[in-house]
Design a protein around this nucleic acid. Structure first.
Length: 423
RNA sequence: GGAGAGGUGGCCGAGCGGUCUAAGGCGCACGCCUGGAAAGCGUGUAUGCGUCGAAAGCGCAUCAUGGGUUCGAAUCCCAUUCUCUCCGCCA
């Protein structure tokens, strides 16, 4: 959620910047400014009324104590009148606030000046590419066939027991999953991240805090009886740790790494993009989250970017990094790097990580603040990224590392798998 | 799941209809004292919104959350939620 002051101070700038995101903000911005004016106007009148009522109540108490009850009775009438007035104003105020909030929530985050203009993924800017030569024979199999061949992932069994998109991992497949999770966590710890193991369900407040609600309501599984939401990413519970928190300057930057299962309904997705491991309802992911001083958030973003790149290098995978254009960047992000890994058999790039700086957009909604050099409270900046999500990494490993003898496990994760070949 | 007790400032803890502008303590900051420190003494010590060019000041709200009673609520009533104790169930 954008800060009201950002909008009020320079509405024209907000409107222009949001055009990069292909968002027409003019009407909304005007509404917001007007609603804010009404809100302040109403509050002023109400506060004055309450101030008078408070004063009256004190006088009445004083009069009663001194046996001047008849004088007090007269004042009571005025007091009752004030109460009625302020209550009505209070209701108006609540409504105005709610309306204002509903509008504010509709404005996307402002893009960083470095975000390229554009409408679709075609316009994303290639910033780095590391193509490892892969000499695959024409007979290269896609990962879903390899999974079946070596009996390591069973999609049909998942469909029987739960439904499509909930596969079983078996034998070396299960062990590979566990190894990757451990590898990613250990790398994160080495890079200075503190490990967190979060709950997999969150309450409504948390789902609002990171912006999943009201935006992506239908994308989360909902446990009606207890009003919990299953997490679509560890970002949700981990970032919400800091909801309504004021950090000390010395606490920054906060660096957390968390493994969790992730659950996504992916309503509306179908076709070849969802084949095999490409899109699942339940998957595993290691997520990194940082909370930084506003002055440092872009150097933190670069640090996170090179960290994720280092993981892909250790996994010996061909990858490229894209800076998302205005049309492709998410609602909440100011600047996002997408990491894509080449899938040899599918002959296309698969998104495996997304590293973003949200600046103060999330922290404003969550009231995540820190005390600056002068003891003033300010909103912190939040950043996160996948490091990494398993399914597509597994898909890429299977496809790129296939040989006549089997799937070759990259050196870096052999200490975790305990084997170097899937055959 | 049942019964009971509770949730007060950064922390501990008193208050149980008006004097709460929340006692007292701890912590923290600054000052005095000291050769330096400790102790001691003094001062200060939340968040949000509004008023405002900015600050100071002032107003309003906040004693788990949301309602209610009352001229007046930390204090009384109702609901929700969390914590603790006991019982039951249980990986």
């Amino acid at each position: 959620m954008l800060q009201l002051n950002t909008i009020k101070n320079d509405p024209e700038r907000v409107i222009q910047l949001l055009k990069i995101k292909n968002f027409e903000a003019e009407a909304l911005v005007a509404d917001i400014i007007e609603l804010d004016r009404r809100r302040r106007e109403t509050q002023k009148i109400m506060d004055d009324g309450l101030a008078e009522a408070n004063k009256l109540a004190k006088e009445i108490g004083f009069l009663f104590k001194n046996g001047r009850g008849d004088e007090a009775t007269a004042l009571k009438e005025r007091s009752a009148e004030l109460k009625k007035e302020t209550q009505a104003l209070g209701n108006t105020l609540d409504e105005t606030r709610k309306e204002l909030d509903e509008k504010l929530v509709l404005l996307p985050n402002l893009p960083h000046p470095g975000v390229p203009a554009g409408n679709s993924e075609e316009d994303n800017e290639l910033v780095e590419s590391r193509d490892i030569e892969i000499a695959l024979e024409q007979t290269a199999l896609p990962h879903w066939e390899l999974a079946e061949k070596y009996d390591i992932i069973d999609f049909e069994l998942g469909s029987k027991v739960t439904g499509a998109g909930f596969p079983f991992y078996k034998g070396k497949g299960a062990r590979l999953q566990r190894a990757l999770i451990n590898f990613f966590l250990e790398e994160g710890i080495k890079a200075g991240y503190a490990e967190i193991q979060p709950p997999l369900f969150v309450n409504e407040d948390s789902a609002y805090g990171t912006g999943q609600l009201p935006d992506k309501d239908g994308q989360m599984y909902h446990i009606g009886e207890d009003n919990f939401y299953t997490i679509p990413t560890a970002e949700v519970p981990v970032t919400n740790i800091y909801r309504d928190v004021i950090l000390d300057l010395a606490d920054l930057p906060v660096k957390n790494v968390a493994y969790s299962s992730c659950f996504r309904r992916e309503a509306g997705s179908y076709g070849k993009d969802v084949r095999g491991l490409n899109r699942l309802h339940q998957f595993d992911k290691v997520e990194i989250v940082q909370i930084s001083h506003p002055d440092n958030s872009y150097s933190v973003l670069e640090e996170m970017r090179s960290y994720v790149a280092s993981l892909l290098e250790k996994l010996e995978l061909p990858y490229r990094i894209l800076k998302l254009c205005g049309g492709d960047i998410s609602f909440t992000s100011a600047l996002t790097y997408d990491f894509e890994v080449y899938s040899a058999a599918q002959k296309r790039w698969l998104e495996v990580s997304s590293v973003s700086n949200f600046e103060a957009f999330q922290s404003n909604r969550m009231k995540l603040r820190f005390r600056d050099e002068n003891g003033k409270t300010r909103l912190a900046h939040t950043l996160n990224g996948s490091a990494l999500a398993l399914p597509r990494i597994v898909a890429a490993l299977l496809e790129n590392k296939q040989t006549d003898d089997g799937i070759v496990i990259p050196e870096a994760i052999r200490p975790f798998t305990g084997f170097d070949l899937i055959n």
